[in-house]
């Protein structure tokens, strides 16, 4: 039985039309709501990345799904068909294979290049280790905040304001903030969702993440690395506040904690805990 239906052309047409429609829907309807929102420059950058990835993966996924669906519907053996009938012995098509390789390689190289540019531009809010490659903003006006994770809470130190330590996180709007994330015991991860910041807190290591805040807002902070029994309870929240409000808050906090601040270990990028559970 010779089947002369132009299956390939039909499928290609179906794919082109549906990908245009669906990609448009995805990019213009779904993507603006992508996490983590547009609260900060880094968060917006992540939304852009998510949008590009969604926009590119929609036609790819659709192509594969349509092909699978088309084959399963059109080429299915139906009840009553001659069971001895076999398919055509096609063993490959070198031009399709070559084009597939070319197209997927182009996509991958584009994605890697695009992702690298987006990453190196502003660090994308991720932890960059002790010597960050992407330094953002003017070092003079950058606010440094040290995030000290321990089982099972975060505390925050403000080295530019006398190094006081508090369990509240407030940062000013329209400012570049340099988070120095470290840990006193096990590995934690500082995840400020709406800021678009995630950086692992490693004991004995300084992990720097940048964020450029925009308007005032509240944000949630979670620990994103399993850190023991109460990991699920290791969350708090923080605020981005106007600069004047931040100035008065930080002065007040500094004053409030001044009796204890000098008792703290002097500000360092890491604090090694005392060796535990050893013999002798």
């Amino acid at each position: 039985m010779q089947d002369n239906t132009p299956h390939f052309r039909r499928l290609a047409l179906l794919w082109v039309v549906s990908s245009i429609v669906l990609t448009a829907i995805v990019v213009f309807v779904l993507a603006p709501g992508m996490p983590p929102g547009n609260g900060t420059v880094q968060a917006s950058g992540q939304v852009v990345d998510n949008t590009v990835l969604l926009g590119l993966s929609t036609p790819v996924a659709l192509g594969v799904l349509l092909c699978l669906g088309y084959c399963l519907i059109v080429f299915r053996e139906r009840p009553g068909d001659d069971p001895h009938l076999e398919g055509p012995a096609i063993r490959g098509n070198s031009s399709i294979q070559m084009w597939w390789l070319v197209v997927t390689t182009t996509l991958v190289l584009f994605l890697a290049a695009f992702g690298s540019i987006e990453l190196l531009k502003d660090g994308a809010g991720g932890g960059q280790g002790p010597n960050p490659l992407s330094v953002v903003g003017n070092p003079k006006s950058t606010l440094q905040v040290q995030v000290i994770a321990q089982q099972w809470q975060f505390t925050y130190r403000y080295p530019q304001y006398g190094g006081f330590e508090t369990n509240k996180l407030e940062i000013p709007a329209n400012t570049t903030v340099e988070f120095h994330v470290t840990s006193l015991d096990v590995i934690h991860s500082f995840w400020a969702y709406q800021l678009g910041v995630k950086a692992d807190a490693n004991p004995g290591q300084d992990n720097i993440a940048y964020v450029q805040t925009k308007a005032p807002m509240n944000f949630a902070v979670h620990c994103a690395e399993l850190c023991g029994v109460w990991h699920g309870y290791m969350f708090d929240s923080g605020k981005v506040v106007p600069k004047t409000e931040f100035a008065s808050w930080v002065t007040q906090q500094r004053k409030y904690f001044s009796p204890e601040t000098h008792l703290l270990t002097p500000y360092r990028h890491t604090y090694f805990p005392a060796p535990q559970r050893r013999g002798g």
Partner: peptide, 30 residues
């Protein structure tokens, strides 16, 4: 950036598997 590239490159050989699946289904007696 290197690990980003190498990770995304894994989708190339994985894509080969999908290509073989689609090619085998095409005009078969499923």
């Amino acid at each position: 950036p290197f690990y980003m590239l190498s990770t995304e490159m894994i989708s190339l050989p994985t894509g080969f598997t999908f290509l073989c699946v689609m090619g085998t289904l095409w005009r078969g007696r499923i």
